[in-house]
């Protein structure tokens, strides 16, 4: 998968996060999902199900352990999608 795909993933994620975040902040890649964007665990897990359907991939919940920022999440999805 090319970098442009990563950018597309990041763009899509940013749009989705903007719609579910209650922070009112503009989304940037380095933003922390919990502390800055107020994405609680259930919102994140539901977002993951949407992402799985959008990209037709499986994203194990335990893979989220190392995800803290918007960019971390985009990289994880990019990595899983690329490995297919």
């Amino acid at each position: 998968m090319s970098d442009s795909n990563y950018d597309e993933i990041l763009q899509l994620l940013s749009e989705r996060l903007a719609s579910i975040s209650t922070s009112g902040l503009a989304i940037t890649p380095e933003m922390n999902l919990i502390n800055q964007l107020a994405i609680d665990s259930i919102k994140l897990l539901n977002l993951i199900m949407e992402i799985e359907d959008t990209f037709d991939i499986s994203v194990p919940v335990n893979a989220l352990t190392d995800v803290q920022t918007v960019a971390d999440l985009a990289k994880l999805i990019h990595r899983i999608k690329s490995s297919q």
């Binding site: 199900m49 799985e52 499986s58 194990p60 919940v61």
Partner: peptide, 20 residues
Amino acid sequence: DIIRFRHNDVVDLEKRLRRL
């Protein structure tokens, strides 16, 4: 690996099994 499916949604469950 933990994968969730939508509550009581058998279509969603089948989709996730297929992906595996």
